[in-house]
Design a protein around this nucleic acid. Structure first.
Lengths: 252, 252
DNA sequence: GTACCATTAAAACGAACGTTTGAACGAACC
DNA sequence: GGTTCGTTCAAACGTTCGTTTTAATGGTAC
């Protein structure tokens, strides 16, 4: 027959199925039996190939994040090399960080929107081993990008930049994960929002691209917003009085 | 003795404990035995008072969300009455929606930051009954606020407003939930970010207030960002060619 | 053929899960 | 005092969980 089950087939079929099921039902909500059943492999296959359920989840992410974060570092390298020592523009940095991720959503071979949604949801999963795993995977990348933002916005307090990086990650994660979560809150199908005919499958490729185009301006607007005022805050130390942030092109 | 265990005591002790544990370990990650154990009540107490674990989670949210969403609607009522027919300012709307929520974080009697964190995390939980529950709880409020934003920003396409409402909810949820989630990604304690001495308990009250002051400008900046360009959007299908990381040219 | 190896298969493991049961308690009312 | 009713209790229910075990399979090298 056409589909011989070699080792690689089994491993990757498990990974693909687990990626989708973890996205749909969460880590704790997805049992090994459901995974192996959907992948049409034996129940013991997961423990044989990966060792444990935790290790399976880690591998699901590792095979995507390794590529993603490598691309992110490379993108930043190219930008900085091209800038020849000058600070980058915030828009460039955001494009390198978020754009690289969102472009994964356009390519099914890289996990497509399934992986993006899984990523967005899993970042808030409370399980300890998940958090420590992400910490390790992201440490390098976040650090490089943080420094780049510090240089790009020398007049903004570093703490403020980190907060806004926080906010931006959140906006992105929700926008991705919420494709079928928060639509329920806003009462709109994401297809409607995209102006699609809202067919059965709105072609993740297109979805990811539209999402990127709507998200990037929002993030930039937030990143460059005027600094908070801190009126009547009971004192502690820092005088973080508002200096205006370079807010070019802020249109009504 | 001082602590007599009346019915109300048991019910509320369960709710308080469940609120905290669901926040720390998630819904699926928190067992009835852990809940009842921490609340020092019998295992059967949850099923007796609430009927099921699902019903317990719903009640945990209902007792807070009922108050919150009522406040939100009242805040909007007050604003619109005061405006006497004129459209509200976006900043007023955001303040009424997000400010009301964030002010809950300052009051331990309303759940404090524990409830806020739980809310932020649970919005991404994939369980079906959770999503449908939130949909019902939020429908009214979201609808009123959406309309207010439509009126406040008549020149912005409605779809764009809904998207940005999406983004704002995400930024807020992450900022709240991430108090100990994404710090691990950004490598900073939230105490550090706030400029605190980072004592044992940074006094949720203060934390919530600082968070609000940093979040609101970000949200406003994002909401009023220039509209996306939609340049060269291919009409139909895939063409998944990854354009190389886009470069320098990107001029804001 | 035989020995070896990685992989798959079927069955069982103990533990933990949410829920239910039936009895015991204790204050309130007649 | 006896009855009632809301509540608490210990114990068990049947199920499902992740994992382990033991045997069978199929190809490759000798």
């Amino acid at each position: 027959m056409t589909d011989q089950k070699t080792t690689l087939d089994t491993r990757e079929r498990i990974l693909d199925v687990a990626e989708r099921l973890f996205m749909e039902n969460g880590y704790e909500g997805t049992s090994m039996r459901v995974i192996t059943g959907a992948a049409e492999v034996n129940l013991a296959a997961v423990n044989y190939h990966f060792g444990s359920k935790e290790a399976l989840l880690r591998e699901v992410f590792r095979r995507r994040l390794a590529w993603l974060n490598h691309q992110r570092l490379e993108a930043l390298d190219r930008l900085e090399e091209h800038a020849a020592g000058a600070p980058l523009k915030p828009s460039q940095i955001l494009e390198a960080f978020f754009g690289t991720l969102l472009r994964m959503g356009e390519d099914p071979a890289l996990g497509g929107m399934t992986f993006l949604r899984l990523l967005g949801r899993t970042l808030t999963e409370p399980a300890e081993f998940i958090r420590t795993f992400f910490a390790g995977e992201y440490a390098q990348v976040i650090d490089r990008y943080k420094l780049a933002l510090f240089r790009a916005l020398p007049d903004v307090p570093k703490a403020e930049i980190v907060w806004r990086l926080h906010f931006m990650l959140g906006a992105m994660s929700y926008a991705i994960a919420g494709t079928d979560v928060l639509q329920v809150v806003t009462g709109c199908e994401v297809g409607d929002l995209a102006g699609e005919g809202a067919d059965a499958d709105p072609s993740d490729t297109l979805l990811a691209r539209r999402l990127a185009q709507r998200l990037m301006p929002f993030l930039l607007g937030g990143l460059r917003a005027p600094l908070p005022q801190f009126h009547e805050l009971p004192v502690t130390t820092t005088d973080t009085r508002a200096r205006a942030v370079p807010q070019d092109g802020l249109r009504p």
